[in-house]
């Protein structure tokens, strides 16, 4: 197993967000985490990164217990984050956003090549502040940041959120290509897209995993899925 989350409880201030969540991701796999708004999907990703450390349970990455580590230590072990709302460094240029995401020992030019070959649209904005990019371009830069970080596992949070359908298509294609290269744990509201991009899924409700299975086996019409995803 690459990532094993065992029975974690996480609080956000006073509110109990995750109540005994367990999940696992295998090397090379692409796994979706689905569920309604506010059931704890983002918190699960933040818990893995130790940004919001769990109070109970354990998280192991490549056999090593990472619970209680500093976030940067988790990241240095090869866990990448493509967060909700992109979280660009708005006042750094596109190039600098790539540079800051590249490990110090890695070849910077190779990182630029990788980023701009994957997303050729970005190359023309290399010296522009990332804050001036459009939403779609920012999403691509966010994914590129995860890519150049030489990560073994990418935690991707709501990549289609707030984007126009045409752009969603582009992002989706980029993620499909990424799927062959790396292991992914994907949080996505768009059910169709989530199932297309993944092998397996976990369904979260009220801070608990209520269902899991193969992405190919389910469709949006399933009564079970309907019950947990419709508002």
């Amino acid at each position: 197993m690459m990532l094993e989350v065992e029975n974690i409880d996480t609080y956000y201030g006073q509110s109990h967000i995750l109540e005994g969540v367990s999940l696992a991701v295998e090397e090379g796999e692409s796994v979706a985490l689905i569920g309604r708004n506010g059931v704890g999907k983002t918190t699960t990703l933040r818990s893995i990164l130790q940004l919001t450390p769990p109070t109970e349970g354990s998280i192991t990455f490549r056999g090593e217990d990472i619970t209680g580590m500093e976030t940067f230590e988790v990241a240095q072990r090869g866990v990448g984050w493509v967060p909700e709302e992109r979280r660009m460094f708005a006042h750094l240029t596109v190039d600098e956003n790539i540079e800051v995401s590249t490990p110090p020992e890695a070849d910077l030019d190779a990182a630029y090549d990788l980023a701009y070959e994957t997303f050729p649209d970005l190359e023309q904005f290399r010296d522009k502040d990332a804050g001036t990019l459009s939403g779609g371009q920012q999403q691509m830069l966010a994914i590129a940041r995860g890519l150049v970080g030489q990560n073994d596992l990418l935690l991707i949070d709501e990549p289609s959120e707030g984007l126009a359908p045409l752009i969603v298509e582009q992002v989706s294609e980029a993620l499909e290509a990424l799927r062959a290269e790396t292991t992914m744990l994907l949080v996505e509201q768009n059910f169709e897209m989530a199932m297309d991009l993944t092998d397996r899924f976990y369904l979260l409700d009220h801070g608990q995993v209520v269902e899991s299975g193969q992405s190919d086996d389910v469709s949006a019409d399933d009564e079970f899925i309907q019950r947990y995803l419709s508002a």
């Binding site: 976030t71 990241a75 240095q76 984050w81 967060p83 460094f89 750094l92 800051v100 970080g149």
Partner: peptide, 15 residues
Amino acid sequence: RAGSEDGEMAQALGI
């Protein structure tokens, strides 16, 4: 500079 803009994100990039 990155940490000044978003410390959490900077940490998640391994800084």
